[in-house]
Every structure is written in structure tokens, then in C-alpha cells.
């Protein structure tokens, strides 16, 4: 064994991040014939947030780290493009976009911004899609959210979205969210179903989920560029392939995990609402101000937005061609 890769994810072993890391470890250790060992540290054992962990990646105390777009936005603000609502329609589009040149472009931007220290390896998924969930009533149209106190992270984009839909964005630290939902400090949140169920939010009264899918929960996998470039070329290929395997695993894992989560939610009396295409369009229309906010307020926002849009269009066209070939 010649190299050790120390990988960190702030989530726990129930999370899809862990599934991805297991696949990564297994591939890299086997394909490198044991020359590379992968150590996995789950949770906040070594570092506990994006700023702290990415600094670890930059200075080499951590080799691999997964952040959400929110976790990296303080350093690379343009990654918030992944949070823009209703831009990528579904999993197939998202997976095509993230497997393509879009990710390579973002890698270049991040390397340039970090002085060639932090390398974006791949973008996968963590937790499926964000949906609106609340303790009050079924939400079918944006007006149903009017005045509702919705928990958001302290970041501009999700707050702009909540405000655009007429609700009141309320920052609550994640550990205090259960109690806050229970006591009514906030009335709703925007999360994926697996997070909602693993935090037992329905027990705190969170009984209404609208599957609007307003944001893809992207997982950005970072690696210390120095560590990566120090590897011989054949080992670099092993690592890159490992990240491909990891990406595939994290695309698949949330889909599997969400099945029992949805079942459990409904079995517990939860109201699961799937909006019609027209209703979804109404949400998308109401969310328009967020795009303007993003392109005019975020450094590099216009460029990355255009790139994302072009990638989505391209993916949509490809997909249509593939579909028509498949069904005929």
C-alpha cells in the first residue's frame, strides 16, 4: 500500500454519501491492487462544515470531502446554480447534465478560485429532490404557502425562493428544527423525504409533503488537487473511475432509499401530494425572481447559468432522441 486517501462525509452511515464512499473504496482498493487504501470518516469527527472541511482539503489534512452546494457556496458562490428551482426537470436530465462537461467546467472554475488546491471530482446526489413540507395544510399552488414560516438554511438563494413564493424564510439551525416544527416556531421546511423521515419530522407534526421537486440535492465531491496530482497517472485513472462508480451509486441509492421513506410517511398518516404539470408550472412561474436574483447578484452567475441552461437543453434533446429510438 503506497497511498492512503482520507475521505470525510458529514452525514451518517444511513446516508447515500456512505453508500457512495463504500463503492468508491471498494473500486479504488481493488482496481489499484491494494496500492491505494481509502479511510472513511463519517459525521463530524474531523471537521463539521463546508468551510472547515474544504479548508482541510485545501491544506491536505483531508483528501476527499462531499459538500452540498450550500456548504461550498461561501467559497464558490456559482455552485448555487444547482439549487435553482425547476431548472432540471427530472433525474434523467440531471444525471445527463452532471455526468457531462458541465461538471468539468465547474471543476476549472473551482481550481482557479482555490489557487489549484481544491478539485471537483464529480457531482452526485444526496437525498433526491427537495420538496415543500409543512405542518399546516396540503400545498397545491404557490398561494397555499402564503405567510407560512418555512425553515431555510442561512443562504440567499433558498431565502429568495421562499420569499418569491410568498412564504416567510426562517433560519433555524438543523439540530433545533425538530423542536421548532413541533412547537410551531416554524411551520414547514424544504427537504428530501429521506432527511424528513430520518429526522422523524412527521412526529413533530410535519404531515404534508408536496412533491414539487424544486431543487436537485446535488452532492459535490471534492479532492485535494495536490494529493490527486501526486498520484501516478494510472492511479489517477483508478481514482477517477472510482468517482464515476461513486456517482452512479449516489444516483441510484436515494431512489431506493426513498421508497420505504415514502411508504413510512404515508403509513403514518402523511399527506403526499403530486402536483399536476399545470400546478408545477405555476410554482416555476412564481419562482422567476430567483433567476434574476442569481444572475445579477452572484459572481459568475450569468456564465454558469447560461452553461447550465445550455447543458439542460442539450440533455433534453439527447434524451428525446434516445426515448424515441427506444419506444419505436
Amino acid at each position: 500500500q503506497d497511498f492512503t486517501i482520507r475521505a470525510v462525509a458529514n452525514s451518517n452511515e444511513e446516508d447515500e454519501d456512505y453508500d457512495g464512499l463504500q463503492v468508491f473504496k471498494s473500486h479504488v482498493e481493488a482496481a489499484s491492487n491494494g496500492r491505494i487504501a481509502v479511510e472513511i470518516y463519517m459525521g463530524t469527527q474531523l471537521c463539521s462544515n463546508g468551510a472547515e472541511c474544504l479548508q482541510g482539503v485545501a491544506d491536505g489534512s483531508i483528501d476527499v470531502y462531499i459538500s452540498t452546494s450550500g456548504g461550498a457556496a461561501g467559497l464558490f458562490p456559482y455552485v448555487q446554480v444547482l439549487d435553482l428551482p425547476y431548472l432540471m426537470q427530472d433525474d434523467r436530465i440531471a444525471e445527463k447534465v452532471l455526468a457531462g462537461d458541465f461538471t468539468r467546467e465547474m471543476r476549472k472554475m473551482a481550481l482557479a478560485d482555490s489557487g489549484d488546491t481544491i478539485r471537483l471530482m464529480t457531482i452526485g446526489n444526496t437525498g433526491g429532490w427537495r420538496n415543500f413540507a409543512n405542518t399546516k395544510q396540503r400545498v397545491q399552488k404557490p398561494e397555499d404557502l402564503a405567510g407560512m414560516k418555512l425553515r431555510t438554511v442561512v443562504a440567499d438563494l433558498p431565502q429568495e425562493l421562499v420569499r418569491a413564493l410568498g412564504a416567510s424564510p426562517t433560519p433555524i439551525p438543523w439540530p433545533e428544527l425538530f423542536t421548532s416544527l413541533q412547537t410551531g416556531v416554524v411551520e414547514g421546511t424544504k427537504n428530501g423525504i429521506t432527511d424528513i423521515m430520518s429526522m422523524k419530522f412527521p412526529e413533530a407534526g410535519l404531515q404534508y409533503v408536496t412533491l414539487d421537486g424544486h431543487a436537485y440535492m446535488a452532492a459535490l465531491w471534492w479532492m485535494s488537487n495536490q494529493k490527486f496530482m501526486e498520484l501516478p497517472e494510472d492511479m489517477r485513472q483508478v481514482v477517477v473511475d472510482g468517482f464515476y462508480q461513486l456517482q452512479q451509486a449516489t444516483f441510484a441509492s436515494p431512489k431506493r432509499k426513498s421508497i420505504p421513506a415514502y411508504e413510512e410517511f404515508v403509513a403514518g398518516g402523511g399527506d403526499l401530494y403530486v402536483p399536476t404539470p399545470e400546478e408545477k408550472q405555476a410554482f416555476a412561474d412564481a419562482a422567476q425572481p430567483v433567476y434574476e436574483w442569481f444572475t445579477s447578484n452572484v459572481d459568475g452567475g450569468q456564465d454558469i447559468f447560461d452553461l447550465m441552461k445550455a447543458s439542460v437543453d442539450e440533455a433534453t434533446a439527447e434524451l428525446q432522441a434516445e426515448r424515441s429510438a427506444d419506444i419505436n
Binding site: L54, Q55, D59, G74, P77
Partner: peptide
């Protein structure tokens, strides 16, 4: 640490 990359993170609010 303070002068490094982690210090460059922009405040959210």
C-alpha cells in the same frame, strides 16, 4: 488558518 482558504469563505448573511 485565518489567512488561508477557510478565511476566504464569504459570510452568508
Amino acid at each position: 488558518e485565518t489567512t488561508g482558504l477557510g478565511g476566504r469563505f464569504a459570510s452568508a448573511s
